[in-house]
Design a protein around this nucleic acid. Structure first.
Lengths: 132, 132
DNA sequence: CTTTACCTATTGCATGTCCAATATATTGGT
DNA sequence: ACCAATATATTGGACATGCAATAGGTAAAG
């Protein structure tokens, strides 16, 4: 697997990284944000969460990534867990919903413009009027 | 200034953080991504970049944050710098544009849904049909 | 009842992010 | 010429992120 040596940049999903220019790929953070977002939609167990995150980030997070994050969120009262047999379902708390909303506002304020740009470019490409 | 002790979460801008629940606020990463995005729009000098980032993130990055990031991007050939007097203008390279585009695709794939959710909620709130 | 598979969980480590403090250089005002 | 303001830049450190490796518990299959 390609791994940029010292990076301030996104780490792309492994499969896609072959065509990726060197020194261009790292991404940290946002894991708990995504977990809370997923749990705000429905309760899930750990592996289900990992799979959903993997679908979006391109790589499924390791156990050593996902479970400490869940533990931390639980310690803060943002999520709850419910063990039955070998499965543990995680669900968001009211506190967690509040927290997510605040973080979401912040995320949007910080990166919303970039997304709008992205959509603009995509749309104009679709319409074939990229020159404008 | 409030600072959550051990956080997997967003760090909110200082001014807004008073009403922010404890242990709910950290954000790392994405700095270079935002720099490249800004420079893809127009060339800027360091303090101008810092100011623009501050507008979006809520806190203006320190010199010790912004200049190492610029140096790293330059080392990778994603940006170029041009010193005149005490000012140094930074501009994106062709390589940088390519790199940004790849990262942008990735970012959108990973977080696009969250933004669409955000917009949906905002719109329905504006229309007063939040119950749907 | 053993084997296999799978979910959950912990530990240790490498690395990136970002701030505080500090230093240097250039410009403008007096 | 001197001082203040401002831009650029470096260093050191604190801390969060996330992976690899490892281990234990539960359930299903043979």
């Amino acid at each position: 697997m390609y791994r940029s040596p010292n990076t301030l940049w996104f780490r792309m999903p492994t499969e896609k990284c072959d065509s990726c220019p060197p020194n261009c790929c790292d991404m940290r953070g946002m894991l708990s944000f995504m977990i809370l977002w997923l749990l705000s939609k429905k309760s899930m167990y750990g592996q289900e969460l990992a799979k959903e995150i993997g679908k979006r980030k391109g790589t499924k997070p390791n156990p050593g990534t996902i479970y400490p994050a869940l533990k931390e969120l639980k310690n803060r009262g943002l999520i709850e867990s419910n063990k039955k047999g070998r499965m543990t379902t995680y669900q968001i708390t009211e506190e967690g919903r509040k927290g997510f909303q605040i973080a979401d506002e912040y995320f949007f304020r910080a990166f919303g413009e970039i997304f709008q740009d992205h959509n603009l470019i995509k749309t104009s490409r679709k319409l074939g009027c990229l020159e404008s």
